[in-house]
Write a protein that binds this DNA or RNA. Sequence first.
DNA 1: CGACTAAACGTTAGTGACTAACATCCAAGG
DNA 2: CCTTGGATGTTAGTCACTAACGTTTAGTCG
Lengths: 186, 186
Amino acid sequence: MKRSEQTRDRLQSVAIQLFEERGFDGVTVEEIAHQAGVSHMTFYRHFPTKESVVFDDPFDPMIGELVAAQDKSLIAFERTRRGIVAGLSMLDADDDHDIRRRVRLATGSSTLRARILENNHRTEDVIVQALQLNGTSAMEARVVAGAILGAVTSALIDWSGRESPGYLHQYLTEALGVLGAVGIDV
Amino acid sequence: MKRSEQTRDRLQSVAIQLFEERGFDGVTVEEIAHQAGVSHMTFYRHFPTKESVVFDDPFDPMIGELVAAQDKSLIAFERTRRGIVAGLSMLDADDDHDIRRRVRLATGSSTLRARILENNHRTEDVIVQALQLNGTSAMEARVVAGAILGAVTSALIDWSGRESPGYLHQYLTEALGVLGAVGIDV
DNA sequence: CGACTAAACGTTAGTGACTAACATCCAAGG
DNA sequence: CCTTGGATGTTAGTCACTAACGTTTAGTCG
């Protein structure tokens, strides 16, 4: 591993640890950098903002590709659901643990909550784009994406708040199943 | 009108004007305050943040009440749709013009876009609460709210981008009608 | 080994949002 | 007139984030 990647990882793990101890707003970038043995400029060379150290998901673009890759004969809702489930199936227990820490962190800070919303919105946009590629109207795409992401977000927060959560993949798959049963079948 | 309200209005109109001219990030709070003939502290006594001068909607709580007030025998989707339409019907042409300026401003600034998402999320939470009051499950509530707000947001941005938009109320009502026709009938 | 080069990092100085503490002004009411 | 409370100003500070420029480190090639 290159030196710069090591530094990056060190910054990230130090930051998340400190955030868990004293809250996102109770820790300065200066502190994180110092505790990782670097200057604050090095922090900003690895992470564009203080928030981005918590959220650096490469998840969104993948979701888009997976949704776009679904069979065109399927309805928009089903293409989206299958795309998301396909993405989730790639997560292992370590990913789960990591995601859980981050989501728990985020629910405790207004700054991070805002950032989650932004991520969510980007994911929604990506899905909307993917759906439109296969001929779904803009409005229908946004409705489907909004509904499914609403369910996913709700389930994600639920899951991260539980004491002994099962697998995220399984939990969200069930949530999306419920959603189908609820009657949305665009 | 009290002196403090005058100051507040002056700050707000100066701010929005400057934002339209040079973009949200191209204007400092110092400038806004100076141009309104006050100090930056006075600005912060009237608005908690720079963004809040663009968004100070008292709209969300009202939506919640309207949704909660709908007939319990209706399905969740219909309660929400009627609640929102009821809220929209209170808007006159001046409100429309104002909303249009703000939305156009917001779509041009990443900072303000983030703020819109936050507002949206608060509205969603309010609707979810209102729906749950009448016995809808948390998951179903979030799905319905997510879907409807997705449609509303999409339509709102569409509308604000048009050269000669009609009435917002009419536009959004149609959008929500389409949504119903699309097949969501939880 | 020693010089060279590029990536990684540090220092310094600055901007701008936002806050706290304290001082001042100004419009009523007594 | 004078007092009192609300509105405002001043000052000094914190913190996220950026720009410019200097320094170190790691690997490469002669």
